[in-house]
């Protein structure tokens, strides 16, 4: 199978997945609604109190002293919420992949001489585009609530690139979870940890505020460098070493997710 055909088949499968996304909008709406609900909840219910607990430097708007207010908290959690949006859409990808695998047309694809992984590539590319859409909606919502930033064009470009990379890696992982699941229900449960993990990271409160064991976990789990990097990029700060850590995690997760998904999909079943 030549590279040209691989690209062509992947594009065909992407078109198919985009049609699916368009024809079944309720899933997308649900996936976008969830992070927006969290954003509202955290900013308006907890934001006043949590904002007061923020350290002055480096967390909220740069140059601010002392504890912050609700507005500072909005700025603080928006990066975490954006990454949670990526995770939320990735959860949807596990569901839609598992659902797709139960349909007869997948069996037809398996009997055709096509670039076989293109079925998966179509899912991944479609999901990344859906993530882009969701992130834009949620970000617009944050702006509506008053999110402002001093980040320059380079910072924003970096933020977009990072979000795409995170979307790509989490999506390959959830495509694998969708393929490995024996039912659609399983596929909607196994990736829940992706939506939970951002809570135990630097996304909602600074990790210093956590008890020792939890703090260690929070500081070393992959979402923390991703969120810290994104926060630095959208507030115009220097991401530093976190950037490389975040990229490293993304590449690792994407690679493992890809190899795992490929193996699950390409094997000829004996049962």
């Amino acid at each position: 199978m030549s590279t040209a055909y691989t690209v062509r088949d992947s594009a065909t499968m992407l078109r198919r997945n985009l049609l699916h996304i368009r024809r079944y909008p309720s899933l997308s709406i649900m996936l976008v609604a969830q992070p927006i609900v969290f954003l509202l909840l955290f900013v308006y219910v907890f934001g006043g109190t949590l904002g007061a607990g923020l350290p002055g430097q480096g967390a909220g708007l740069p140059g601010q002293g002392g504890g912050g207010d609700r507005g500072d908290y909005l700025v603080f959690i928006t990066p975490g919420i954006l990454i949670m949006t990526v995770a939320s859409v990735a959860l949807g990808t596990a569901i839609s992949t598992a659902t797709d695998m139960t349909t007869g047309i997948i069996a037809r694809f398996r009997t055709m001489d096509i670039a076989r992984a293109s079925v998966l590539t179509g899912h991944v590319l479609g999901a990344v585009l859906r993530t882009g859409f969701a992130v834009v909606v949620v970000a617009a919502f944050a702006f509506l609530l008053g999110f402002r930033s001093d980040a320059g064009p380079l910072g924003w470009l970096g933020a977009v690139a990072l979000l795409v990379l995170i979307a790509f890696s989490l999506t390959w992982l959830t495509v694998g979870l969708g393929l490995a699941a024996d039912s659609v229900e399983t596929a909607s449960n196994t990736p829940l940890f992706l939506v939970m993990l951002p809570f135990i990271s630097s996304g909602f409160v600074p990790t210093d505020a956590m008890p020792a064991g939890l703090r260690q976990f929070a500081e070393h789990q992959p979402f923390t460098p991703m969120i810290d990097t994104l926060r630095a990029l959208v507030t115009g700060a220097e991401p530093g070493a976190d950037l490389w850590l975040a990229i490293g995690w993304c590449v690792l997760i994407a690679l493992l997710g890809y190899l795992w998904s490929r193996r699950l999909f390409l094997r000829v079943p004996t049962k």
Partner: peptide, 20 residues
């Protein structure tokens, strides 16, 4: 791959994309 390039299959159970 050689087999797949030569064959067409209409299985017992519907193999169409219902959303399309």
């Amino acid at each position: 791959g050689g087999v797949r390039a030569a064959i067409g299959v209409t299985g017992q159970f519907s193999a169409i994309d219902e959303l399309l």
